[in-house]
């Protein structure tokens, strides 16, 4: 039912969209993701390219990507999530993509929502975040993490006046303006909440769309309990700094 809805979309003629997938040791999760992405690309009437940013993986992530024939950029040095994702945005910027979609390589994000995210960008939003907490469906993360996310949500509302229910979501789509912004400047680690503020600060339109996320299939989260406190403090500071940062030209 959802499929029929998005098949007629893709209004910009010759539009190009790039799906950016940062991957660090995701060899076991990628094949299934590729299948789901193929399904999405098949039903779209615009170009969808898939780009894997292989962040110096130690497993056979590269071989899996090659086998499937997707575009791969392998970083010679491990840069972490922020540096990897930014490489994707730089690629999108250099190759003049109209839309970039960011999605995790661990299978948490369901590609079937990608066309809806793209639709939101076509409707004039500059950044659209896939949120777990609008309809509260699917995997909702652990309780302690929800508290953290709520706090970030409150902090962003307090500093920018905009209500973002899922600022930590790495499932998002953006248009040319934001691609340019992220290609120039993107935080090193834990980038998601901070970048929302940067985009808002540049007077660009941010919206959210309900998505259903899954519990991760393999691998482990980049944020362990031990790092939790450090994460909260660092991201709080990053959000505050971003809200008083100079605007990009």
């Amino acid at each position: 039912m959802r499929k029929a809805h998005y098949q007629k979309k893709g209004t910009i003629k010759g539009m190009k969209a790039l799906i950016i997938i940062p991957a660090y040791n995701e060899a076991e999760n990628l094949p299934r993701l590729f299948e789901e992405l193929d399904e999405v690309a098949k039903n779209a009437d615009y170009t969808i390219d898939v780009l894997i940013i292989n962040d110096c993986s130690k497993d056979n992530t590269l071989a899996v990507c090659r086998e499937h024939g997707v575009k791969v950029v392998t970083l010679p040095v491990n840069l972490g999530i922020g540096g990897a994702v930014q490489t994707g945005y730089r690629y999108a910027f250099y190759h003049k993509y109209d839309i970039a979609i960011q999605i995790d390589g661990d299978g948490q994000h369901d590609p079937q929502f990608i066309p809806y995210l793209i639709e939101r960008i076509e409707q004039g939003n500059h950044l659209c975040i896939g949120s777990r907490f609008i309809e509260n469906e699917g995997f909702q993360s652990s309780r302690i993490r929800r508290v953290g996310i709520r706090y970030f949500s409150w902090l962003i509302w307090f500093l920018t006046g905009k209500r973002i229910t899922d600022p930590t979501s790495g499932f998002r789509a953006c248009g040319k303006e934001v691609i340019r912004l992220f290609a120039q400047d993107y935080p090193k680690d834990y980038p998601e909440p901070e970048t929302v503020v940067t985009v808002l600060r540049n007077k660009l339109k941010v919206s959210e769309m309900p998505v259903i996320m899954r519990a991760r299939e393999g691998g482990k989260s980049s944020i362990t309990n031990l790092k939790g406190i450090y994460y909260m403090i660092k991201v709080t500071l990053a959000i505050m700094i971003a809200s008083i940062s100079r605007k990009a030209r």
Binding site: K71, V72, V73, T74, L75, P76, V77, L79, G83, Q86, T87, R90, Y91, Y94, K188
Partner: peptide, 21 residues
């Protein structure tokens, strides 16, 4: 230095991917 190294790593990776393609 960290900012410069990051930029360099990204550009090298992109160039290499381009060349291979």
């Amino acid at each position: 230095q960290a900012i410069r190294t990051k930029r360099l790593v990204q550009e090298v990776a992109l160039l290499k991917a381009e060349l291979e393609e």
